[in-house]
């Protein structure tokens, strides 16, 4: 059985992608088979840290939207009244407004004339590539689409090649986060050492615990802030697996897309020991 490790943290920009790519590379260097899943489908970035990616497959993610058969519509307005999202207006005939539609299918069910049918539209893309000794699956939500959920699900369905599945999750603690960490064996919180990081992480922890997922932590930019994140971890009984100090030169390298596993000897050693700690935990 593959082990699914979700890297998440609540706040954005805490280093989730850096740690996800770095950890995935650390597993590769130990001879493990790894799939890296970029589940931040609104703003995917993991691919930027690979120089040798070769695309293996590219697939559209579809979703169905209702279409009104004009000749059968009697403008009775039941579809509009049913729709809780104001996605249907009725002028001479019913008109569906795609950008407000949640794809619930309710209008199709309530139409007494059977005048509404569904048509597939593209809402995103899933790209699978290999490089750096691993498989990278990235999801891309089409710009203008509001709901990343279906794209996240497709990335998870596609990225199953490795023994280790490293999940680079979106920020926040709402539906995209829930969709991403669902089914994970453990959540590795990437939390920056600032009051902001600590505040946002608390919420992510609550969701993960409600979902029955174990939580561990990597503190990033350690030494920069007030150490509040360590107090949060202690209060919550969360083990801190690694502390990554803030280094200006490393930051400069990462900004330019240098792979985190090669960015510095210090960071590599931390990633290796993080990998070893995870392997020891999972394999006993």
């Amino acid at each position: 059985m593959a082990v699914r490790i979700a890297l998440a943290g609540g706040k954005g920009g805490t280093g989730k992608t850096t740690l996800a790519v770095g950890l995935a590379r650390a597993f590769v260097s130990a001879g493990e088979r790894v799939s890296l899943l970029d589940l931040d489908v609104e703003e995917p970035n993991a691919h930027l840290f690979f120089k040798d990616l070769r695309e293996v497959s590219r697939r559209e993610v579809l979703s169905s939207v209702p279409v009104v058969r004009q000749e059968d519509c009697t403008a009775c307005g039941r579809c509009r009244d049913f729709c809780r999202f104001n996605a249907i207006v009725v002028f001479d005939k019913a008109i569906v407004l795609e950008e407000f539609c949640h794809r619930c299918g309710g209008c199709v069910l309530v139409c007494p004339e059977g005048a509404i049918e569904e048509r597939e539209v593209v809402i995103g893309e899933v790209v699978k590539a290999v490089g750096g000794g691993l498989e990278l699956v990235s999801g891309w939500l089409k710009v203008g689409q509001a709901n990343p959920g279906p794209v996240i699900r497709e990335v998870k369905a596609e990225g199953v090649g490795g023994q280790w599945l490293v999940l680079d999750c979106p920020p926040g603690s709402g539906c995209a986060f829930v969709e991403s960490v669902e089914g994970a064996d453990l959540l590795l919180g990437v939390v920056e050492d600032t009051p902001f990081g600590a505040h946002d992480f608390r919420k992510a922890v609550r969701v993960a615990r409600e979902m029955g997922i174990d939580v561990l932590v990597v503190v990033n930019r350690y030494g920069m802030g007030n150490g509040e994140v360590l107090r949060v971890c202690e209060e919550e009984g969360i083990e801190v697996l690694a502390k990554v100090p803030f280094r200006e030169e490393v930051h400069r390298s990462l900004a330019r897309g240098i792979d985190p596993y090669s960015a510095s000897g210090e960071l590599r050693a931390i990633l290796d020991s993080l990998r070893d700690a995870l392997m020891a935990r999972v394999r006993g």
Partner: peptide, 10 residues
């Protein structure tokens, strides 16, 4: 604003 491109940003 929130990060991302989805519903909350819109």
């Amino acid at each position: 604003g929130p990060p991302g491109l989805g519903c909350p940003v819109i």
